[in-house]
Simulated scan of single mutants.
Amino acid sequence: MTSEEDFGQYLDSYIGDDQHIALLLDYDGTLAEVPDRPELSVIPPETKETLRRIANSGKVFVAIISGRSLDDLREKVGIDGIVYSGNLGLEIQLPDGTKLNQTISEEATANFHKMIEQLTKEVAYNGAWIQNKQIAFTLHYREMEPNLVPDLLVNAKRIIESYGYRTFASHNALEANPPIEWNKGRAAELILSSSFDKNWKSRKVIFAGDDTPDEDVMKAIKGFGKSFRITNGADVLTNADFQIRSVQSVLKMLKWIENKMCK
């Protein structure tokens, strides 16, 4: 577990004298605490203003890659001049407004509402509920009695996969995405390759995330970037280079980056 004072130790020599870096971040559980309901999420003012200063410095490229929908993510963060990516990377919007969204088949689009309807009738009760993100969704079950969860997951996966959608485990939730071979890691690669020249892998890249889908970003930048997994469990299996404890730790990392890059 990386201590609160270790950011210089782990990042100073990595960044070296580079005048520009790329900073990729998850949102829920990284920039903001995970609330009981997604709509209650608020990025702490100090974190938001620190990130805004970093993004406006001209020295740090900032992208946020989240499981939320693109519009929801933009509204929650509210910082101009950065890249936003929603629905686990299916939606990407560059600072100039260009969108690099993944194409979803007509069949998957047609089946989406039927699938939501069936899940609502058959599994979304006893504290389970669906967060509809238009092209994907999250089945939340943190309010359920623990003994009911195993059956919920079996039934939900059966229904979701019968429509061809893919499932991903998350914190007290099940993510469902269209049948496309895509993830946060591939989104990160597309964001970086679209934003920089063909030598984008030579750029210094830092990523922080707290959940299973974030591991795909950690794997994607392994070998040329540095990544942090936010977790309280020292024994968590992760592809991250370092582990830190909390959203507050992320703020400390952002402040270190600001002091390093933006003074």
Rank of each mutant, 00 (worst) to 15 (best):
I180N: 05
G97Q: 09
F112P: 03
E145D: 13
Q243F: 04
M1I: 06
D12M: 12
K204C: 09
T103I: 10
A110V: 00
D71G: 10
T30H: 07
I206M: 13
L139Y: 05
V42K: 14
I206D: 03
K260Y: 05
V77W: 05
I230A: 00
I79S: 14
L90F: 09
P178M: 07
I191K: 15
K263S: 09
W200Q: 02
F7I: 14
G97V: 10
K133D: 14
K201T: 01
Y163H: 05
P146G: 07
P213C: 09
L70K: 08
D12F: 07
F196L: 15
D80L: 13
W182C: 14
G58Y: 04
L152C: 11
T238H: 03
D80A: 14
V154P: 06
A108R: 00
N183Q: 12
R229P: 03
N56G: 12
R53M: 04
K255N: 04
Y14P: 02
D210W: 12
A22L: 07
A220Q: 14
E75H: 06
S170L: 14
I130R: 12
T138R: 03
I82V: 11
Y125M: 15
G225C: 01
A176N: 08
V83K: 07
N232F: 00
L119A: 11
A110C: 02
D26N: 10
G78D: 12
G8R: 06
P213K: 10
Q131F: 01
D36R: 15
S57G: 01
S227P: 11
N239L: 09
L174R: 11
S57R: 00
I64Y: 01
V60M: 00
A176H: 10
Y27E: 12
G58C: 07
V123L: 10
S69I: 02
L25K: 11
L90N: 04
I206Q: 02
I159V: 04
M1Q: 07
T212F: 15
M253S: 00
N101A: 03
I180G: 05
S246I: 01
A22K: 02
R74F: 13
G86H: 09
S246Q: 00
E145S: 06
V77F: 08
T231Q: 03
I159Y: 07
Q134A: 08
I65G: 06
I54C: 00
F224M: 00
K219N: 13
R53Y: 02
L51W: 03
G89M: 15
V205F: 01
G97L: 11
D214V: 13
R37Q: 11
F228Q: 05
E33M: 13
G223R: 02
I54H: 02
S202I: 05
P178H: 14
I104T: 03
R53K: 05
L192T: 05
P146R: 08
K201S: 02
E189D: 15
Q102W: 06
N87V: 05
L31G: 09
K121A: 15
D18A: 01
E5S: 15
M1G: 08
A156H: 14
S170P: 11
E175V: 14
Y10L: 10
A108T: 04
E117N: 15
E145A: 04
D197Y: 06
Y125R: 15
I21Q: 00
W129M: 14
E161H: 06
T212M: 14
E49A: 08
A22Y: 00
I180K: 08
Y163P: 11
F224S: 00
E189H: 12
T138G: 01
L40N: 09
L88Q: 15
P38G: 04
N132W: 06
T238V: 10
K59P: 00
